[in-house]
Design a protein around this nucleic acid. Structure first.
Length: 647
DNA sequence: GGGAGAGACGTTTTT
DNA sequence: CGTCTCTCCC
């Protein structure tokens, strides 16, 4: 298919795809077809013979990158197969792994799993205990994300230079990197090497969801852009990532910082039915902090759509009511894959998921998957890493300490300093301790534990030598155990798809598996009702959308008491944008009998324990139940919103 | 290095 | 309300 196939000349989407200005900004509201326009632009570049390796399409999530790739291939665009859509993160990991970059950064880009952070907290606990260590790590990330690192006027409350030196030293010694350091290290490398070949590697850069990038990410885009044409796309009305320090001002100021930039906009909401467009406009228009008045424009062919707002007496009723709605819709012929249910609390989403599963509705839950939540699974995975590489210092450190409250930090400190002094690896040092060649104080338990680790590791390596990857998977993640069913499935998938079984090294297998765990695949063929958070729903659309738990305390959540008034206001406004993102998922497909349906539900009461557990602060408690008011946002949907129903 | 008891904290989420 | 974390003491 040609890049301009079916594109009307002079239309907004056509201009975006066709423009050869070297700086383009596109502001595009929800449902206005920005992915479509981006796709056509990339397609044009490929058709004009630009090398795929010289085009860098940056997306916020890997799912979005895959979508772009798949759709281009489906269009039969020349060389689309070779085009790699990527997240800034995987780009950063790739660049940081290049040999000349490894030397420049002096750090190994081996990201730590969440669970592997525990011994790090313990080893650094002299800096104020686990809680403070976590806060200081967050402050360290925050400073990077906001590019305050080199600013002497840095006011970050929990910054602690001594701590950061100790953290860096721990990570250097253990040959690891925090996930949040990956972007900063790429930033430093590019900044310090202005003529690095990476800075002129691309001729065309396209960035989606620009409002969700933080400062350091935006700066990386700038540093990659000296020799490239750049097209950024975003919408500050959909900025919902303040927790990762997103810098939505960047998209507003972008044209001022890029002279001669062409400023384009997509305003026709081709996705949503008219009522939903009107309600979305009204909701976002009520924001006291919004500094413009962009409106989504209705797409007449979509029709009015259907909207219901329902309040239930308690959470059980709401969950049952939502399940009834789903069954009704399916009875009328709606495909389960065309229904999404958004709940901003995992516990509520999980109740809905369980109710639907009980009623035999095909359902999938998209809350953070937990392949590695279980300790036994963590241990098996750590052993796998160690069997692949006995100098995996992070895995070894974790395995040594895991059975102890103190992570055996006393003895380990001696092992570490001895190892640093002599240049021996921790593994070699422990072997020396075991043989009595090396003597260090307080290492009794450490040596005993190491003996177990050594035995198990040798056993696994023998197993691998005899039976290959398959034997190892069967040993570590045997069939019919829920705890590692997911990780087993991922392992088998890798062994099936790749030539690992005979060819690949154990190291390569472990790397693939780690990558797969960090970024679980989302199937492109959707057969199920999808239950997820509002954040996850970004980029999706569905003919039937339910937003559950539209109550004060959840949506909007209650801001922290110790915040300033301005911070509280900013918090509420981000929640408004979150709700805006949620309701604008609704897709009208009138010719297929799907008018586009939106259900906003809430309930009056829920169990106090559930409320506590998920951080819901209700209006009040009565007889062990939380009493909740309907969300203020339901009052701000304007005249197109229907009367509230009793559920 | 480990156990008992007191106190803090709890949400969403990307890589 | 229940779990995690920290402190104190052995």
């Amino acid at each position: 298919m040609a890049w301009d196939d079916g594109l009307e000349q002079g239309s907004e989407a056509y201009s975006i795809a066709a423009s050869d200005n070297n700086r383009i900004r596109v502001v595009a509201g929800p449902g206005t077809g920005k992915s479509f326009a981006m796709k056509r632009r990339v397609s044009r570049l490929l058709e004009e013979g630009i090398e795929p390796s010289e085009i860098l399409p940056v997306t916020f999530t890997r799912v979005a990158a895959e979508d772009l790739h798949r759709e281009l291939v489906a269009m039969d665009t020349p060389r689309a197969e070779e085009l790699n859509g990527t997240t800034l993160h995987s780009l950063a990991l790739k660049i940081l792994s290049r040999n000349h970059v490894l030397e420049a950064t002096a750090r190994v880009p081996r990201p730590l799993n969440e669970f592997e952070l525990e011994p790090l907290y313990s080893d650094l606990c002299q800096h104020g205990g686990k809680r403070d260590v976590k806060k200081k790590i967050l402050a360290y990330h925050a400073a990077w994300a906001r590019l305050q690192h080199d600013d002497p006027a840095d006011v970050e409350e929990f910054r602690d230079p001594e701590f950061e030196i100790a953290l860096n030293s721990w990570l250097t010694f253990h040959r690891g990197m925090l996930i949040g350091e990956v972007i900063p290290y790429l930033y430093q490398y590019l900044r310090d090497n202005p003529v690095a070949e990476e800075r002129s590697e691309f001729r065309h850069i396209l960035v989606d969801e620009f409002q969700d990038l933080n400062r350091v990410e935006q700066e990386i885009v700038r540093m990659l852009s000296d020799y490239a044409d750049v097209c950024i796309v975003g919408d500050d009305d959909q900025s919902i990532y303040s927790f990762k320090f997103a810098h939505p001002e960047g998209i507003k100021e972008w044209c001022d910082n890029n002279n001669g930039a062409e400023d384009l906009a997509l305003t026709d909401c081709r996705r949503c039915p008219a009522r939903v467009v009107q309600m979305s406009n009204h909701l976002i228009g009520e924001s006291p902090t919004r500094d413009h008045n962009r409106q989504l424009v209705e797409f007449d062919a979509n029709g009015e759509g259907e909207v219901r707002i329902i309040q239930f007496t308690d959470l059980q009723q709401e969950i049952g009511g939502i399940a009834d709605i789903v069954e009704d819709l399916m009875g009328q012929g709606t495909h389960p894959g065309d229904i999404i249910i958004l709940a901003q609390r995992k516990i509520i989403g999980t109740y809905i998921y369980e109710e639907l599963v009980n009623r035999n509705v095909p359902t999938k839950s998209y809350y953070q998957e937990a392949e590695l939540d279980d300790e036994e699974t963590q241990e098996r995975f750590a052993f796998l890493k160690l069997a692949a590489n006995d100098d995996d210092r992070v895995a070894l450190r974790w395995l040594l300490g895991r059975n102890s409250n103190t992570w055996l930090r006393g003895g380990y400190a001696h092992v570490r300093s001895h190892s640093a002094d002599t240049g021996l690896s921790p593994w070699a040092t422990l072997l020396g301790l075991q043989d009595g060649v090396i003597q260090l104080p307080y290492c009794g338990r450490l040596i005993a534990r190491f003996a177990e680790i050594l035995e198990r590791t040798e056993q696994l390596q023998q197993l691998f030598a005899d039976g290959g990857h398959q034997a190892l998977v069967e040993e570590l993640f045997p069939e019919d155990d829920d705890r590692w069913r997911d990780i087993r499935a991922l392992s088998l998938e890798i062994l099936e798809n790749e030539e690992f079984d005979n060819e690949g090294t154990l190291n390569a297998f472990v790397a693939e598996l780690s990558y797969a765990i960090a970024q679980p695949e989302i199937p492109s063929e959707i057969q199920d009702v999808r239950v997820m958070s509002l954040h996850k729903s970004k980029g999706l659309s569905a003919p039937a959308t339910v937003v559950a738990a539209c109550v004060e305390g959840v949506l909007p959540r209650r801001p922290d008491e110790d915040q300033t008034d301005n911070e509280k206001l900013a918090d509420i406004e981000e929640q408004r944008r979150l709700f805006f993102v949620g309701i604008s998922r609704v897709k009208a497909r009138p010719d297929e009998g799907e008018p586009g349906r939106l259900f906003l539900t809430c309930s009056r009461r829920m169990a106090a324990a559930d409320a506590h557990q998920s951080g819901i602060e209700p209006a009040s408690f009565e007889y062990g139940e939380a009493v909740m008011n309907a969300s203020r946002f339901l009052n701000q949907l304007g005249p197109s919103a229907p009367e509230r129903e009793i559920g």
